[in-house]
């Protein structure tokens, strides 16, 4: 069978250089039965990502050798697909659905609230590395819109307040501590009814 990848077969693939022997052995084992002449590269990515949670850098030269192509092309392919990652995800990663049904029901508000609560931008990890937000595409579970996913569990339909409370529980912040600058005198705290009515326009 003709394979596009064999165009580059005359190029000598870069030898695997980095990585522990165990890791390389495991990677080779995972892709052992795959062949460049079949539609197998995506299968290789999926197997590796299933095992490690991401595609380790060390896999790139190995795959290039296996599929008779260059590391650059393998890297470019990984980079192209949004579901493939080259770094491990944060311990707690929240998937935020970007689909139109969620959008129309206010998912952008939820996004802003989550970004603020986790102190983490979309597709980034928080400074302490504990939380991550990931943008995902619509998979048609629009009856739950707007929704987020957390470890394969779908949570929706969410209001902004619910999403904040949920995120605070994840961060271990049940009720936010009052600001420390003394802006809130104790007496005021005890009797919120002291707050004067605000004149309407």
């Amino acid at each position: 069978m003709f394979s596009q990848a064999s165009h580059n077969s005359r190029l000598t693939p870069v030898e695997p250089v980095a990585g522990s022997t165990e890791l390389l052995a495991r990677l080779s084992e995972l892709i052992e039965d795959l062949s460049p002449d079949r539609v197998d590269l995506l299968k290789a990515f999926h197997r590796i990502q299933h095992e490690f949670g991401y595609v380790p850098r060390e896999a790139v030269p190995l795959l290039a050798g296996k599929f008779r192509t260059t590391p650059a092309i393998i890297f470019g392919t990984i980079d192209f697909y949004s579901e493939l990652r080259m770094a491990p995800a944060a311990e707690t990663t929240v998937d935020w659905c970007s689909g139109p049904a969620c959008l129309l029901k206010g998912s952008l508000n939820i996004r802003r609230a989550l970004e603020a609560t986790f102190e983490c931008e979309m597709n980034r990890t928080s400074a302490d590395g504990r939380f991550g937000l990931r943008l995902v595409q619509c998979d048609g579970t629009c009856h739950l819109a707007p929704l987020v996913r957390h470890h394969g569990r779908y949570i929706g339909p969410l209001t902004v307040s619910e999403s904040i409370e949920w995120a605070r529980r994840l961060t271990g912040d049940d009720r936010r501590a009052p600001p420390e600058d003394g802006a809130r005198p104790a007496a005021d705290e005890a009797s919120p009814e002291l707050a004067e009515p605000v004149e309407a326009e």
Binding site: R112, V160, S161, I164, L194, A195
Partner: peptide, 16 residues
């Protein structure tokens, strides 16, 4: 002073 207002510099307009 017991009155509520919204700090526009901090507000991210999340609607909560």
């Amino acid at each position: 002073n017991g009155k509520y207002r919204i700090d526009q510099l901090k507000c991210i307009k999340c609607d909560a």
